[in-house]
């Protein structure tokens, strides 16, 4: 009865806390893999290897549009 009266945020927190605490070994391994993967993706790959070209090279959408129209219309060299 006392448990039911706890506020909703506390109950959600406890739900997750107990869930993680009682997690089997495969679950711990899976979470370790998820965290390593996310680290590699967002800290290494995203920061150092995958810049957003359009955001990085142009100030605003007008510049991006001008660049794209130029690229879409300029003669192509196939040499």
């Amino acid at each position: 009865m006392k448990k039911r009266n706890r506020n909703i945020f506390r109950r959600i927190f406890d739900f997750y806390y107990e869930g993680f605490r009682e997690m089997p070994s495969w679950g711990i391994k899976a979470w370790a893999l998820i965290l390593i993967k996310l680290f590699i993706m967002f800290v290494i790959l995203r920061l150092f290897f995958f810049p957003n070209i359009m955001s990085e090279h142009f100030e605003d959408d007008q510049e991006r549009a001008d660049y794209m129209i130029e690229e879409l219309t300029k003669p192509i060299s196939y040499d």
Partner: peptide, 17 residues
């Protein structure tokens, strides 16, 4: 699920770069 989750996000990185 744990191993596959978020692997698709790399495709979105590639779209931008």
């Amino acid at each position: 699920f744990a191993i596959g989750v978020a692997t698709g996000l790399i495709l979105e990185f590639e779209f931008g770069t």
